[in-house]
Simulated scan of single mutants.
Amino acid sequence: MTSNKDWGEPPMTADYAERTWDQVEVKILNVADDLAELSRVRAWARRALLDIPSRDVIDMIMVLDELVSNALLHGTPPRQVRLKRREGWLRIEVDDSCVDEACPRPPSETGGRGLALIESCAMVWGQLQHETGKTVWAELTSVQYPQGAVVE
């Protein structure tokens, strides 16, 4: 698994960790300092979430997009995204090296809706401050369908 110390790797590298004893699967992606990375991050996450019903993936990708957008617009490099998941649950974590707290701002023509959108889609979200920056995270659940159910 990649740690914060490994951020010196080239941008857009991805590590896929083995499932741990508690069956949480972790996927890690380092993100370059470019807004164009958003489409690549979304594509990476869609591949990682192929087994989740599309109606749930839409919200998950929207939350991921807002977290990464905020890190790219308001944070500083290096940046890293982690998807932590087990059946029915996903935690999205985005690190950046800016120590300023992520905080909502009033909506305007230029933005200010991201954290409100995250709050409306996620069960819970928050942030952790650490010596090298912060981690902003959100947790979501996916609907569990009985085995054999047909999902559009």
Rank of each mutant, 00 (worst) to 15 (best):
Asn70Thr: 11
Leu67Met: 08
Ile28Pro: 00
Val31Ser: 01
Ala32Lys: 04
Arg40Thr: 09
Glu66Met: 03
Gly88His: 08
Arg46His: 07
Leu29Ser: 00
Val31Asp: 02
Leu29His: 01
Glu37Lys: 01
Ile92Tyr: 03
Arg79Met: 15
Met60Cys: 02
Asp65Phe: 08
Leu35Trp: 00
Trp21His: 11
Leu83Asn: 13
Arg42Val: 09
Arg85Leu: 12
Ile58Phe: 14
Ser69Cys: 11
Ala48Arg: 10
Leu49Ile: 00
Ile61Cys: 14
Glu37His: 02
Leu72Trp: 02
Arg55Leu: 10
Ile92Met: 03
Leu73Ser: 11
Arg40Pro: 01
Arg47Gly: 15
Gln80Ile: 13
Glu87Ile: 13
Thr76Pro: 07
Leu50Gly: 07
His74Ile: 09
Ala71Ser: 15
Trp21Ile: 11
Leu83Thr: 13
Asp95Ala: 06
Arg40Trp: 10
Ile61Arg: 11
Ser54Gln: 11
Ser97Val: 02
Pro78Trp: 11
Val94Pro: 07
Asp34Tyr: 08
Leu73Ile: 13
Asp59Gln: 08
Ile58Gln: 14
Ala45Glu: 01
Asn30Ala: 03
Leu72Arg: 01
Leu83Ala: 13
Glu37Met: 05
Arg42Gly: 00
Glu18Ser: 05
Ile52Cys: 04
Ala32Leu: 04
Gly88Ser: 04
Arg91Leu: 09
Val26Arg: 12
Ser54Lys: 11
Ser69Trp: 12
Arg19Ala: 13
Asn30Pro: 01
Glu66Pro: 02
Ala43Met: 07
Lys27Glu: 03
Asp95Glu: 06
Leu90Trp: 05
Glu25Ile: 01
Glu87Leu: 13
Arg46Met: 06
Arg82Asp: 09
Ile28His: 03
Ile52Gln: 04
Ile28Thr: 04
Ser69Gly: 12
Ile28Trp: 01
Glu37Val: 04
Asp56Tyr: 03
Trp21Gln: 12
Asn30Tyr: 06
Ala17Ser: 14
Ser54Gly: 06
Gly88Val: 03
Ala36Val: 04
Ala48Val: 07
Asp56Val: 04
Pro77Asp: 10
Asp65Pro: 04
Ile58Lys: 15
Arg47Trp: 07
Leu49Tyr: 04
Arg19Trp: 09
Lys84Arg: 10
Met60Ile: 05
Arg82Ile: 03
Glu25Met: 02
Asp96Ile: 10
Glu25Leu: 05
Val26Gln: 12
Met62Asn: 15
Asp59Met: 06
Glu37Asn: 03
Arg91Val: 09
Pro77Tyr: 11
Val41His: 01
Pro53Asn: 06
Arg47Glu: 15
Arg85Glu: 13
Leu29Gly: 00
Arg91Ile: 09
Glu18Trp: 02
Ala48Tyr: 01
Glu18Met: 05
Gly88Leu: 06
Lys27Thr: 02
Lys27Arg: 10
Val68Ile: 14
Cys98Val: 07
Leu67Arg: 04
Ala36Asn: 10
Lys84Cys: 11
Asp95Val: 07
Val81Thr: 10
Ile28Ser: 04
Leu38Gly: 03
Asp59Ile: 01
Tyr16His: 15
His74Arg: 11
Val94Ala: 13
Arg85Lys: 12
Val94Ile: 10
Ser69Tyr: 15
Ile92His: 05
Ala36Cys: 02
Val63Lys: 02
Arg40Ile: 08
Leu29Met: 03
Met60Pro: 01
Arg85Ala: 12
Trp89Thr: 06
Gln23Ala: 06
Thr76Gln: 15
Val24Arg: 05
Leu72Glu: 04
Leu67Asn: 04
Leu64Gly: 13
Pro78Gln: 10
Gln80Phe: 08
